[in-house]
Nucleic acid binder design. Structure first.
Lengths: 341, 341
DNA sequence: ATGAAAGCGCTAACAG
DNA sequence: CTGTTAGCGCTTTCAT
């Protein structure tokens, strides 16, 4: 069942069938009706491989993530898919699982399928690979780390806004010994979070001294809590570079009989869904995953539909902000007294 | 840059280029080398839309899930993608978000992109939609609910094995009042779990009386724990039809000052990743998501590569089993005494 | 073993 | 506004 068959049954040309299917407004409504009738009767589904081939538009957007099982991503993928459906696109989902080979393969797969744009949400990507995409004029959108080329856009995260709120919240609760567990510092996003923490502390006259390097995993959080708790100046609150780390901290605290939030206040980062489900619900800095996905998708759409002439690199902004749940509490006054006496 | 360009640069025909790229063994190694050399030099990536169009094989498998953000699915999607990469396929991921329109759209999208097979992991799908796929001879694989057509395979979950282990574990711990929170009973999979529970209880001479209908959400779990706790025969242990429900129970128990596992033993179902992260780590019945994905993928591959003649409906089996963590404990002897006196 | 050539199903000029 | 027609880039007979 192909377009010719429909054309002959509806007694029009294939061009007319194509036009009606694509909602070109210039077709005579009477012919259009005839076409739709046949299309519905025979259950005709146009072949997108064929139309993509000839039109040069596949109507597929690539989405490269680091790991689908990383709780940060499902929400993003879902939102991306929702938007794809609304806009009549498909999504080609690919994960790098932190493997350079796999990353290269991702790019190759995108090109072979002739995607119309790709969102790269891996927090880091080799520049040589990007060139492959740019060479083919595929619109690209990155988070934070996009290189400065025409046609590649960036979503700049405002880490400072949320982290400052977190620090000030803790300070307001009477905390002075506030620790920070970073992410892997080879990631720019992890560096940015640490810097934001340092700045926020200094702003209010606190020394950002209790900073330890984590790895954005639960295991890392567990290990580092142990380390922090043994240090000379034991923190009364800890902020983490992501939620999984905070969850590790919470778990280890539980195992050691340290009560969150009574004995230790805790703030995460990202606001993955899981943050609401754990006990106690985790206060965290939200970096909205649905917003992120939406911005990425819209960037791609607008870049795709723009005339080739005025390809630009647009910077988008995404704010972060504190969402309070139940993992923070006032610093123990007894501690303060003890120090005071 | 197309196959003709490569052919002319390598001084061979396009047919030879095509053959070498597809690893057809009959090409002269000397020619093949020439071709590969040019391909690599110019960075040629064959157009899969074109090859799909002519060969009739898109090398895309559809994967329909109910919701990407449902913690049950990310592991499945990741495994599916891993296997796709290994086998040189892409995955067309679609979610129904419990919306019949969206479900219909999913099927349409699959057909329009000419997928070579589709795995339907939505626990329920209208038969009329399935016909669209079957009409086009697209191999299908379902979980539990696949209709009895040639070319559609089924993965049968053995709910009984794991649920029996759970019940017996609880019984061995001295529990007699064991409640069960079901899923939405319009789902066959939820019914099957309840039935398995009833049977397991009866096997050991316990009456499966404390059964309440949930909805597989955390909120449902919270609500139903409240209800159970107020009932005349208050349970000392509860099993849930899925992990999210169990997490809701745990959360509500925490809020009410009921300690898990000391005051209440709890067992979930699925073994989503989250089960390990919550506090205390949740004991649950594992239905391996990676295994499920692997079986689905392999079913599709083998059905795709089979000669059209011998299309069959293969049934696959997936076992479930108890994984013990820290949400169960011995029933309070004081309670038993109290009842005895 | 290799090449020439005929399409796969569709869109987009172009002509009418 | 509609139809004719020339491809899109590739695979696959069919000859050679």
């Amino acid at each position: 069942m192909d377009i010719r068959e429909i054309a002959s049954r509806a007694k029009v040309s294939t061009a007319t069938v194509s036009r009606t299917l694509n909602n070109i407004p210039t077709v005579d409504p009477r012919l259009a009706r005839r076409v739709w009738k046949v299309v519905n009767e025979v259950g005709y589904y146009p072949n997108k491989l064929a139309s993509g081939l000839v039109s040069g538009k596949s109507r597929v957007f690539g989405l490269i993530v680091s790991e689908i099982t990383n709780p940060f991503f499902p929400e993003i993928v879902q939102t991306f898919e929702n938007l794809a459906v609304e806009n009549n696109y498909e999504i080609l989902l690919t994960s790098t699982v932190h493997d350079p080979k796999r990353m290269e393969l991702s790019v190759r797969r995108m090109i072979e399928r002739r995607v119309d744009g790709v969102a790269i949400l891996t927090f880091g990507m080799e520049e040589s690979l990007i060139q492959h995409l740019r060479f083919r004029k595929v619109p690209l959108v990155f988070v934070d780390v996009g290189p400065d080329f025409p046609g590649v856009s960036n979503i700049r995260i405002n880490y400072q806004s949320g982290i400052r709120q977190g620090v000030q919240h803790l300070a307001a609760l009477g905390h002075r010994q506030i620790a920070f567990i970073t992410g892997p510092l080879h990631l720019k996003s992890a560096q940015a979070r640490r810097t934001a923490f340092e700045k926020s502390m200094e702003e209010i006259g606190l020394a950002p001294e209790l900073i330890v390097e984590g790895d954005h995993t639960m295991e890392g959080g567990m290990r580092l809590l142990t380390q922090l708790v043994r240090s000379e100046t034991r923190p009364t609150a800890v902020m983490c570079s992501n939620d999984m780390t905070a969850i590790g901290v919470m778990r280890e605290a539980y195992d050691q009989g340290i009560k969150v939030p009574q004995d230790l206040s805790l703030i995460g980062f990202d606001d993955i869904r899981l943050a609401q489900f754990i006990i106690p619900p985790l206060s965290t800095i939200r970096m909205s995953q649905t917003e992120l996905a939406r911005i990425a998708f819209e960037s791609l759409i607008s870049e795709t539909e723009r005339q080739a002439a005025l390809k630009g690199r647009v910077d988008h902004e995404l704010d972060t902000s504190l969402v309070l749940r139940r993992s923070t509490a006032r610093a123990r006054t007894s501690d303060v007294d003890a120090t005071a006496e």
